[in-house]
Amino acid sequence: MAIIDLNNVSKSYVSGFLMRKKKAVSNISFKVGNGEILGIIGANGAGKSTIIKMIQGFIRPDKGDILIDNNKPFDPASRIKMGYLPENPYFYTNLTAVELLRFSTSASGMPKQLADKRIKTLLETVDLYPHRKQRLKTYSKGMTQRAGICFALVHDPQVVVLDEPMSGLDPLGRKMVLDLILDLKAQGKTILFCSHILNDVERVCDRVAVMDKGHLRKVFTREDLGNQTMEEVFLHTIEERSEC
């Protein structure tokens, strides 16, 4: 059963003084099944973040339909069981990590006792527990990213949307996040994972969607890779389309 379902979705942005329309994504269709990890890869400006913003309900598609567990993204119900990590997580910097996570759990209707336990476990997992009472403005970029991961996962979502989760992390932090994603996979969570670090995508994803200039060029499974690396398949797909 598809948890995330995009059907023929297009989106344009209006920009400049002449209000010219610029296509961000065109006729995108894909489904993400329950317990599956789908990676979206593509160069900068390929339309990855636009897709994620439409799934989150931040922007509306001009054409096509999006369903998250049979709910429209603008319906708050679609986000009850969804966790989201933006590309550059900006938080309320005068809050502490614990306060931020408590907000997330109370907004999701999680009982307080369960929430406190979950907050402690997650902060320990990402190594932020000793810094839990520090204000977020004192955090480094890597620490903010780890706090963002906790914020996305603290209410135990069934669907997790991660936009560049390794951004700003050192090798240890990257390993920690990759392990966390694999752990989520083992728990049967559905994950949509956007990255341009192809090695990370190769390690964790069941299927990979290649995006280029707003179009979905190809969707392939790990098995389809054969002897090729993810980078080779990606470059080959882009070059093939450029020649067309």
Binding site: Q56, G57, F58, P76, A77, R79, I80, M82, G83, Y84, P86, N88, P89, Y90, F91, Y92, L100, F103, S104, A107, S108, F151, A152, H155
Partner: peptide, 17 residues
């Protein structure tokens, strides 16, 4: 302006809330 709103709107809040 600074996109902090994403952290709130990724939770089950309606725009009116």
């Amino acid at each position: 302006d600074k996109r902090t709103i994403y952290c709130v709107m990724s939770k089950p809040f309606s725009r009116a809330q």
